[in-house]
């Protein structure tokens, strides 16, 4: 379970997030949507302790992490995984070594057991037999899938996805969306997905939180968001250039 209470974050003088209250239930897929630069990725970074909030509390599985030292945080992070926007694979290592990294660092498994787990996780993301490939030989979509395999290698309880479908073709985006859902189904993980692809958000989300200007302006299920009366939400999910468009369309129909 993840809970953010009155969280604020700033980079230097610039206030990025204010007054963020958000709860993600166990096993839920929470999708965070919002325009570029609205602070979506910052929320993920706060959740996994890469950034410290300037105010508020962040609870992960019943423990408050915002004032934890790095060592304590690492104990929490062993139950979490993250898929980065640009995959962030270790480019000096093979795909297999990337996926095995967490297992080698934090478990006492022997080489044969690690190889077996790596094979299983790569099969889950549809990359059977790619252990020896270098990340530089992979396409963007394949990198994302390796990144996902790496994130779930240690059987985490929580997986955070930072723009998992950004820069991918529509078919690959759908593949990734399905992987996010199947990961939840097979491993029962709690997922937080940051995206600005609405089709992807609607197809995977249990609930959606819309963020704008550093604040959460709406949280709800897919149908609640679709029917939201907030003009900013309607503007964003339909991709209108200005929020006045909704009024004009409605008036032209009548």
């Amino acid at each position: 379970m993840i809970k953010l209470a009155n969280v604020a974050a700033a980079f230097g003088e610039k206030q990025v997030l204010q007054d963020i209250n958000l709860e993600v239930a166990e096993g839920e897929i929470m999708v965070i949507i919002g325009p570029s630069g609205s602070g979506k990725s910052t929320i993920l970074r706060l959740m996994i302790g890469l950034l410290k909030p300037t105010a508020g509390e962040i609870w992960i599985n019943g423990r408050e992490i915002s004032r934890m030292a790095e060592d304590e945080l690492n104990a929490i992070r062993r139950h979490m995984g993250m898929v980065f926007q640009y995959s962030a694979l270790f480019d000096s290592m093979t795909v297999g070594d990337n996926v095995a990294f967490g297992l080698r660092q934090h478990t006492a498994l022997n080489d044969a057991e690690i190889a077996k787990t790596v094979r299983r996780k790569l099969r889950m993301v549809g990359l059977t037999g790619q252990e020896r490939t270098m990340p530089s030989e992979l396409s963007g979509g394949m990198k994302k899938r390796v990144s996902l395999a790496r994130a779930i290698a240690i059987d985490p309880e929580i997986v955070l996805y930072d723009e998992p479908t950004a820069g991918l073709d529509p078919i690959m985006s759908t593949t990734i969306d399905r992987l996010i859902c199947s990961t939840r189904r097979l491993l029962g993980v709690t997922s937080v997905v940051v995206t600005h692809h609405m089709s992807s958000a609607f197809s995977i989300a249990d609930r959606i939180a819309m963020i704008s200007g550093g604040r959460i302006i709406e949280v709800g299920t897919v149908s609640e968001i679709k029917q939201s009366s907030n003009p900013l939400v309607q503007q964003f999910i339909h991709g209108w250039v200005n929020s006045g468009q909704i009024a004009r369309r409605r008036s032209s129909k009548t």
């Binding site: 945080l73 104990a75 992070r77 790496r150």
Partner: peptide, 20 residues
Amino acid sequence: EIGSMKVTEQIDALRVMATD
């Protein structure tokens, strides 16, 4: 090497994977 790891978020990936 470390600088390009930094700009491609690999250092963050290390931290996320509970590795100092």
